[in-house]
Simulated assay, not measured.
Amino acid sequence: MAKMNLLQAVNNALDIAMAANERVVCFGEDVGVFGGVFRATSHLQEKYGRARCFNTPLVEQGIIGFANGLASQGSVAVAEIQFADYIFPAFDQIVNEAAKFRYRSGNLFNVGGLTIRTPYGGGIAGGHYHSQSPEAYFAHTPGLKVVVPRNPHQAKGLLLASIRDANPVIFFEPKRIYRASVGEVPEEDYELPLGKAEVVREGSDITLLAWGAQMEYLELAAELADKEGISCELIDLRTILPWDVETVAASVKKTGRLLISHEAPITGGFAGEIATTIQEQCFLHLESPIARVAGLDVPYPLALEKEYIPDQWKIFEAIKSSVNF
């Protein structure tokens, strides 16, 4: 085991993937010598050469178009979009090309070797162009997988699984905790299953569900709830698409309550999809309405960032409301 922060875990996963398979290439804006704006790809170019780790022009649709071409020809392409906010120029290349490549060719061709890494979310005073959480846009697209880790151990195992998955994957990295989240990570090669949620903590009164950096606020809210005698079960969804309905439903049938939290705006957020599915499957087990604690329906604010973020205090108030319904 080694102590790593989330950035180091991502770098370690890329290093292992590139060492194990010479077809793995990583590229993006400033990814080469500079190591990316957050240094996630530091030292990979000097170790594996400029043909396997290199800079691209500042053209997101070009990055993903190029990645689609590489993946369709048998390369394992790991493309970085510098901030998730700037993934939108590549939206067509992702949802109309990468996601449909296998389907439209009748399984003759695919871009399953494509992984798109991108840092998402707020908490770094980045303002409205460097703080968004766009996971729900892509959850509407069959043919993609969408993955979000919460800590270094998860980041390494989930990224290695994503790179080796037979489908195109968007891997959202929570930049607020890039360096703040530190933990013990196995030094060896390992994978964590995609499409499988993790029950982080068992409880009996309410199920709390989130993904990525939002898990930290859930844990803090659960500690506040403990002091009120409320037992919280915590689940990290980990994979948005496909999401683990079975694990979440089993938990809600036990606790009778569900609270979902995400940083993205509440309207159209992925919590709505989860709430609808769990309501259908667990209706007779529910003791209170399913709660959503999410971002506001406004552009991500700079000066009022702390007011925008769904933190432990907002979650704790929602927990109490649900339990006392």
Rank of each mutant, 00 (worst) to 15 (best):
V78T: 02
A90V: 00
V76N: 02
G69M: 13
Y86A: 03
A98E: 03
E80A: 01
A67E: 02
G74N: 11
Y86N: 01
I87N: 04
V76E: 05
A67D: 05
F88R: 03
N68P: 10
G69C: 14
N68T: 06
A84M: 12
V78E: 06
V78D: 03
P89I: 06
G74T: 06
A90R: 04
A71F: 11
F88S: 09
Q82A: 12
L70P: 09
F66G: 14
V76P: 00
G74A: 08
V76M: 08
S75C: 15
S72W: 02
V76G: 00
A90N: 01
A79L: 01
G69A: 15
A79R: 02
N68S: 13
S75D: 06
A98I: 06
D92V: 11
A79S: 06
I87C: 10
I87V: 13
Q82G: 11
Y86W: 15
V76F: 00
I81A: 09
I94K: 08
Y86M: 02
A99R: 04
I87P: 04
E80P: 00
A84C: 10
E80N: 02
A71M: 09
V78L: 12
D85N: 15
I87H: 07
Q93V: 03
A77Q: 03
A98Y: 14
I81H: 03
S75N: 11
A90G: 00
V78C: 08
Q73E: 10
N96H: 15
N68Y: 13
A79Q: 04
D92A: 09
G69R: 09
A99W: 06
D85H: 13
Q82C: 09
F66N: 08
E97K: 07
